[in-house]
Computed example of a mutant assay.
Amino acid sequence: MSELVKTLVLRPDISKPKWDQSTFEGRAKHFFAITNPLNLFYGTNQLDDFKKIVDEYRKGTVSNDLTVNQLWKAKHVVDSAFHPSTGEKMLMVGRMSAQVPMNMAITGGMLTFYKSPMAVIFWQWLNQSFNAVVNYTNRSGDGGSVSQLLVSYCSATGGALTAALGLNSLVKKAPPLVGRLVPFVAVCVANAINIPMMRRGELTDGIDILDENGQVIGQSPGVAKSAISQVVVSRVFMATPTFAFIPVVVNALEKRPYFKANPKMFLPLQTILCGLVLSVSTPVGCALFPQLTPVTFDQIEPELAEKLKNLPNPPKQLYCNKGL
Rank of each mutant, 00 (worst) to 15 (best):
V146Y: 13
L149A: 10
I300H: 03
R27H: 09
Y136T: 10
L161M: 10
L324F: 13
S2A: 10
V62P: 01
F82I: 07
C320A: 12
V185A: 15
P315R: 03
S145L: 08
M238F: 03
F31Y: 15
L203H: 11
K115E: 15
N251Q: 15
A224E: 06
L311I: 04
G43R: 10
A156G: 10
K264I: 10
R95M: 13
L126C: 05
N69L: 12
L91R: 08
D208P: 06
P37Y: 01
M1S: 02
G323E: 11
I207E: 07
V223F: 06
I217H: 07
K73I: 02
I209N: 01
I193S: 06
R58Y: 04
T61D: 08
K309W: 01
G87M: 13
I300A: 01
F113K: 09
F41E: 01
K75E: 12
V178W: 08
W72N: 01
A81N: 07
C154V: 13
F259I: 02
Q124C: 05
G108M: 13
Q70G: 15
F259V: 05
S80E: 08
G206P: 09
T23E: 04
I217P: 01
L269G: 14
I14N: 02
D65A: 01
N36M: 01
Q215N: 06
P302M: 09
C274M: 07
K29D: 00
K264P: 02
S80D: 04
G222R: 06
V249D: 02
F50T: 07
L203F: 10
S63A: 09
L165M: 08
F259Y: 13
S229E: 03
G158L: 03
P315Y: 02
R235E: 10
L288D: 07
S152A: 15
G166N: 05
A119V: 04
L292T: 14
R235T: 11
K225H: 14
E212T: 05
K18H: 05
K115V: 09
N262K: 13
V248I: 12
F245E: 10
A132Q: 02
G323F: 14
T162I: 14
